[in-house]
Design a protein around this nucleic acid. Structure first.
Lengths: 157, 157
DNA sequence: GCAGATAATTATAATGATTATAAATTTATA
DNA sequence: TATAAATTTATAATCATTATAATTATCTGC
């Protein structure tokens, strides 16, 4: 759907559209979770047996630098998640299952305008990341209670 | 100023107020930049020659788990920045000089309410981080232009 | 105040995501 | 098709963060 947007931004920057880059862009544009470099690598590995993690990181870095992709702080799992949707929106991260979903809000665009207008910053991007417990994990933890408290490993970063 | 809030949250959790923890809380509450673990460590080292980085990380982890401190994704320098202000507000990170400043916005609290009400998530915290070029760095880069483009090392995470 | 139990700090090693490097491969162009 | 430039790959290095185990400090009841 917006795969072409990503590819176009590569083209416009004079970069080559390799099969690997194409696949990565496609994955980023179509997947509705917000994959990490490793997730992308493992998803694509069967189709590109020679694929290297470095290529995934390189491509992601290029896309981020071009402003076509945003990086979300980790969701409690110590890895960077990537988001091909650069329109103003909110990400909801579950600290238990580490999923990240989108949440459409009418207020975010106001934020953007407010900041650009009042701060003096040249805004290049944003990460609006709320974290908490998703409905499913609320049930799980309300059952397991204090027992299997979620692991706090890599909770920071 | 809000040092006591941090200390109280430790007390309420039944944790001990050690000199190290007190100093870390004080630093978090009073410094207006948003320090990293290493910055805290190096600031306090002269006063606590035996201080260990592990203590800083431990204390920060405790404060984060208690919800008294938020973790901001890195500002282009590959390190976690900590924010003792948990009231809804926006952080502006400069990708060039890696400073993070606060920006008061009237819309953030609406966001909070909207999400808590409509998403089904139990919201535990948020990182509203906009990144771009601060006014000072805009001048610098407009002078240096394409030459000394800022280093993209650790731009992700 | 003091001993015993518990919690916290410290020093150090281990982990693991991300980056850097250099060689091999592919792509675009003439 | 040959050449040059860009990209991919494999691998090693980096470095923030965690885990571990031993030492030290803190609290509670006497």
């Amino acid at each position: 759907m917006e795969t072409t947007i990503l590819l176009d931004s590569l083209r416009k920057a004079g970069l080559r559209i390799t099969p690997q880059r194409q696949a990565i862009c496609e994955l980023l544009a179509t997947s509705h979770d917000h994959p990490t470099a490793t997730m992308i690598y493992e998803t694509l590995k069967p189709r590109f047996p020679s694929l290297s993690l470095a290529t995934v990181y390189n491509t992601l870095e290029v896309l981020v630098r071009l402003g076509a992709v945003n990086v979300l702080g980790n969701a409690g799992d110590g890895m960077a998640h990537y988001d091909a949707d650069t329109d103003p929106h909110i990400n909801l991260a579950c600290v238990s299952c580490h999923k990240i979903v989108d949440f459409p809000s009418q207020y975010v665009q106001f934020l953007d305008e407010e900041i650009s207008a009042a701060s003096g910053y040249r805004v290049l991007g944003a990460r609006v990341l709320y974290y908490g417990l998703c409905p499913e994990c609320q049930q799980k933890t309300s059952i397991a209670r204090r027992e299997t408290d979620y692991d706090h490993r890599r909770d920071n970063a």
